[in-house]
Design a protein around this nucleic acid. Structure first.
Lengths: 352, 352
DNA sequence: GTGAAAGCGCTAACAC
DNA sequence: GTGTTAGCGCTTTCAC
């Protein structure tokens, strides 16, 4: 049995349309691309035929012919993470608004896969590549990776959400320092002094920056830095939050507030606190980053820093299209975070 | 300023490789596709040049020439939902294993967008389309949509996760009846008789089937059906679960167990129960579907039905490639759900 | 085993 | 305005 048994096997082309309309293929192409004036009666006839046959111009041929695909490749770390998913959806929306298409690949954090997928995107001749998470977020840029990106950039613009030292690729990134500031201001105002940091790896730029800013702010407020309040490197998931908070509490370390690296880890932190018979926020306040739907589901609801995903997606796409089209944009653009206060943060408990 | 200022603007082709290797373009093509024997010394030389220039064959040209793109379009309802995200990632993995690429689009539940995106996928000449959620999951298939799909199927195989009456498209679907059975067996064994259904819309096939099976099972167990225990149509989100459970409890309806339509709504149900001063599972057991990461985060952890995402993704891709390549597969394939018992379900409380 | 040549479906000069 | 003619970069007969 053949795959296509019903209907004509080969698809209809602009030539078919042209013949039936009694015009040339170029004329059909012109109405398709709106690139030049076509006598309105011819135009109507062509449009009618396109409608009639539900003709879909072959994007491969188009891309081949004019060497532009109007497609942007998005290489994300893991779409199952709501942070990436939200950002991707906003990229999709922003791209649609300017008549671009985005294609998604997941590297799942593996460098090999990242390299392979970059190759795929090149084969597909995407007009630009946006890398969300992954190697482009590393604090210490990998040399080979930088070389690869530089080589890609000879043809295809690349924009990343972190940084890539030694490349001229554009960056759209959250102001991580500001994000820490917002949270610390909130907690300090509530009277907290023993503030713990849970989750994340310091080889990731944004996490590194957050830790730096944390120390600065303590100093500015004349609070002594206590290393016991900062968890060692971990992940960005529930388990890390749970384990690190357990370790801290089991060691007898008692913060009055915890800054978790994201909502996932915050959920783990909250569970640990609960299991230790402590109350949120009466005994310990919990705050975090990302403001995903989990923040609304937590009990109590979670105070979290929002990263204005729509703006973020728009800036990412705008930067990519600017590079494609030769428009100029800043080489580094920041997205400003906002605080969303909910029930998980409250006044510091009185000193014992 | 030109977009590409560094490096050569135009990309390298098989002709460039051919010339430098002292062979013809066809030979380069042959080593690229492994379609015919090439003398090993020539092959080596070509391979070396490909390596040297990091040559990426133009997928557009390839697709144009052989009218196969080895690309499968995935049209998902909303990738921000972890159910879809997990399934998509497994599709990606399964596709990779058989050397296909998947491209994702989100319809966000809007029919217009779904139609538009189907058009885009056709333009891209994907070899097959997999529709996850959306119109292909409707209980009552929309006539115009069915016509559109039929027209697409004349050229491109379509597989859906629900059904599409009046089309010959293949279906890979969760056994929703079985999924309800599993949960009901679990609850009945625990002694529950007053079992509530929360969340979901009955115009979605899987939800409809679950409701049907629910009634059958009650009858089989000689438990009278109480309409007050079944919430009216709602959504698949946290708010629905929260609102519907509130309404039920506020009305004085007191189930001993709740079956939520997914983990999102279960989280809402749990919050509502908590706020009513009731204990889970001592007063009310809560169980749900999807077994996403939220099930692990809930307090207590959530008993949920798992949909073996890996198998599901594999079957979806296998079905799609089978249709592309003319292999035969069942027109309807089922994915079997499994129960994952956690803390949110326990013995029914003693009758008052 | 290998090269020449045609063709996939479109766009973009270039004439008229 | 509109048709003719070259490509875009591959694959694939068809000779040799």
């Amino acid at each position: 049995m053949q795959p296509q048994k019903n209907g004509e096997n080969k698809s209809i082309t602009i030539y078919d349309i042209a013949k039936e309309a009694g015009v040339s293929a170029s004329t059909v192409s012109r109405v398709l691309t709106n690139s030049a004036n076509v006598r309105s009666e011819k135009k109507k006839k062509v449009l009618a035929l396109i409608e009639k046959y539900n003709f879909k111009p072959n994007a491969l041929a188009k891309g081949l012919a004019d060497t532009k695909t109007r497609t942007i490749g998005v290489l994300a770390a893991d779409i199952r993470n709501p942070f990436y998913a939200s950002l991707f959806v906003e990229c999709e929306n922003a791209a649609r608004a300017v008549d671009y298409t985005v294609v998604l690949c997941n590297s799942l954090g593996e460098t090999d896969k990242e390299v392979e997928l970059l190759g795929k995107l090149q084969e597909q001749r995407v007009d630009a590549i946006i890398q969300i998470g992954g190697r482009g977020d590393d604090l210490a840029s990998n040399v080979e990776y930088v070389e690869l990106i530089n080589q890609i950039m000879a043809k295809t613009p690349v924009v990343v959400t972190g940084k890539l030292d030694g490349t001229r690729c554009h960056v759209v990134r959250i102001d991580a320092m500001k994000a820490m500031e917002i949270l610390m201001d909130h907690l300090l105002e509530l009277g907290h002094k023993r503030i713990a940091l849970i989750g994340g790896r310091k080889d990731v730029l944004s996490t590194f920056e957050k830790h730096q800013r944390y120390k600065q702010i303590l100093k500015e407020n004349m609070i002594e830095f206590d290393p016991a309040l900062v968890a060692e490197d971990g992940g960005y998931n529930f388990e890390t939050g749970y384990r690190q908070m357990n370790e801290m509490l089991d060691k007898g370390v008692r913060p009055t507030a915890v800054v978790a690296i994201n909502d996932f880890s915050a959920m783990g932190v909250m569970r640990s606190i609960n299991e230790h018979g402590l109350q949120i926020p009466q005994d310990i306040s919990v705050v975090s980053y990302d403001n995903t739907y989990m923040a609304e589901m937590a009990i109590p609801k979670l105070t979290s820093v929002d990263y204005n995903y729509e703006e973020y997606g728009r800036k990412l796409i705008d930067t990519a299209t600017a590079m494609i089209e030769g428009r100029k944009t800043g080489q580094l653009r920041m997205v400003m975070p906002t605080l969303v206060v909910r029930g998980s943060s409250g006044p510091a408990p009185l000193e014992l």
